[in-house]
């Protein structure tokens, strides 16, 4: 009963013409990487990047819309124009910079960390889990440990709880709430590893206007301290507060 409506609307979309209304900037995110981005109980995208993205759009006078996309295909969908910006805890890397342009970092160069279920976990040469196609997975592949890959970060953490992996290697800030709320079942082991060059929004190559608008607002937010305030609220704890 819903079918004809959908078919008609789809047909409409295929043949739609007419002048462009005010452009909507579509922001793609994964929705599975709290506190950066996640889906809240109301089914909406939430998290640090949601708040930051909305603030940027407001200051730049843009109308923005949030779109969820699988991590694996998040860049191809940007380059083929299904959305205009990626804000998905994406670390700036050389590889990625060959296909997308990054804004100024809105999160300082990050540390990745190992979390395990025991202090003496063998994270150096044991089995370490990580999310497929992340810089962390690439790092473990080159280290002395055996890499165990999972499709999403949660399953990678779960592997430690299940005893499948000795440790999980992920973004420090992603692990913090999981470790703190685990009642001692999970703990950080080893040193933090600084990899990557900060987290930034990604744009199609050559999309300089939009990137310029984002850069200007990010710079202003760094200058007036509102970005640091936001970082402290989402990521701050007793031991450390990320800031510019």
């Amino acid at each position: 009963m819903k079918t004809p409506i959908i078919a008609a609307a789809a047909l409409g979309a295929l043949v739609a013409t007419g002048a462009l209304a005010q452009d909507v900037v579509r922001i793609g995110t994964e929705g599975a990487y709290a506190p950066y981005n996640y889906i809240n109980d109301a089914g909406q995208v939430d998290g640090f990047e949601r708040e930051l993205g909305d603030a940027i759009c407001e200051r730049a006078g843009l109308t923005c819309e949030w779109v969820m996309n699988d991590w694996d295909s998040i860049i191809p969908n940007l380059t083929s124009g299904n959305y205009d910006v990626i804000m998905a805890a994406m670390t700036i890397t050389d590889e990625r910079e060959q296909v997308v342009d990054f804004s100024d970092a809105y999160y300082p160069p990050t540390a990745s960390a190992y979390a395990a279920d025991a202090e003496d976990a063998n994270y150096e040469s044991g089995v370490v889990s990580a999310q497929t196609a992340t810089i962390q997975a690439a790092y473990i592949a080159e280290s002395g440990a055996t890499l165990l890959e999972f499709a999403n970060p949660e399953e990678a953490v779960q592997a430690v709880r299940d005893g499948e992996a000795d440790a999980v290697f992920a973004d420090y800030d992603y692990l913090v709430p999981l470790v703190e709320d685990s009642d001692g079942a999970l703990m950080f082991v080893g040193d933090e590893v600084p990899i990557g060059g900060g987290i930034a929004a990604a744009f199609r190559k050559g999309d300089d206007t939009l990137r310029g608008q984002f850069d200007a607002v990010i710079e202003a937010m760094k200058a007036d301290g509102s970005l640091n305030e936001m970082l402290a609220r989402w990521f701050g704890d007793e031991s450390r507060v990320p800031a510019f």
Binding site: A13, Q22, D23, T79, G81, D84, G206
Partner: peptide
């Protein structure tokens, strides 16, 4: 490496 058509040809329109 981008696939960029004119704005009128985008599917669906970005608006």
């Amino acid at each position: 490496g981008n696939f960029l058509v004119c704005p009128e040809a985008k599917l669906p329109l970005s608006s």
